[in-house]
Simulated assay, not measured.
Amino acid sequence: MTVSTPTPTQTHQWQWQGHTIRYQSAGTDGPALVLIHGFGASSDHWRKNLPELGIDHRIYAIDLLGFGLSAKPTPTPDLPYSFETWAQLVLDFSEQVIGEPVVLIGNSIGCIVALQAAAIAPTRVRGVVMLNCSLRMLHERKRAALPWAQRTFSPWFQKILAVRPIGHFFFQRLARPSVIRNILQKAYARTDAVTDELIEYLLRPAQDPGAADVFLAFIQYSHGPLAEDLLPQLDCPVLCLWGAEDPWEPIGLGQAYGKFSAVTDFIALEGVGHCPQDEAPEQVNPLIRQWVARQVTRSI
């Protein structure tokens, strides 16, 4: 019996609109997959997936502008921290670095980035895999469905954080190992996956100049697209994987995405929380490989 050996991971830099973007890669053959992290994370959040998926794919994990080891410029009207900006970044990366249509795989807000990219340029995206897609419950169109206290408090909290000294003080209080660990242990159902290594991967970029402004810019971002806006626009197939114990993005609400025609499969991952790729890579990696082989490779 042939045993597949995980592939080594390499780190690179790429220039986009004058800004340095860090990405990681693995594998030399097969369909191209691009991994897109969630809010506050980086390509390191895919460290358990890159070597395995690289066995039979060319796999890339990118640090979105403003996160990880990528540049963190001050947001401007011409370059806001928005899903449109990040989607264009991913599309340009796919064209300039990879040079062919890709499968986009996202976690949390990374799913919205992937959907937005597929909606903008359908011929350049072969498929989308969503892992616990952000429901964006604080979006201006969804606040009415929130409990009274939450929908009343949230806009005021955003206004308070918009005062830069207050916002920066709040961010500094968040960017501490004990706080990050506590947040992750609430988001992860498998708390043993919350390791010192993971804490360091998330904490290090938060020390960079500009990190607080990126965080505060996104906290103010209560508009833009929702997954339910973008899914009807897609021509490519979509796989939904959902950690059933996610306290942030409840699976009961996420299951509505399974009703869209583009979604070929909706798979619940029992005993898993918000970040399945990190909590349960032994489940996620085979599911992605099987789905890409079935839904995407056949059409290439």
Rank of each mutant, 00 (worst) to 15 (best):
H37D: 12
G40D: 09
G40Y: 02
H139Q: 11
L104I: 10
P75S: 10
C275S: 14
G40W: 02
V97S: 03
M130K: 02
T123G: 12
G127M: 11
V125M: 09
F260N: 09
A162N: 13
I98E: 01
T9V: 15
L241T: 10
I180A: 02
A41Y: 10
I59P: 00
F260Y: 15
D265V: 05
S94C: 14
V129I: 15
R124F: 08
N182H: 13
Q15C: 04
A244M: 07
F83I: 03
M1E: 12
K259Y: 00
L239E: 04
I288G: 06
R181Y: 01
D63S: 05
W291Y: 08
R151H: 11
F83L: 10
R298T: 15
S178F: 13
L65H: 02
P225G: 13
P232C: 12
P77K: 12
P225E: 11
A193M: 14
V292Y: 07
W46Q: 01
I300C: 07
H12L: 01
L146E: 05
G210V: 04
R151C: 05
G167E: 06
F157Y: 13
I267H: 07
N132W: 04
G254R: 05
L203N: 01
T9L: 08
R124C: 09
L64C: 12
F157S: 13
E95C: 02
G99W: 07
H168M: 08
F266C: 04
F260W: 13
A114L: 09
L161M: 15
F215L: 07
V292F: 09
R164G: 01
E95G: 08
I120W: 02
L241Y: 08
D235P: 00
A121D: 15
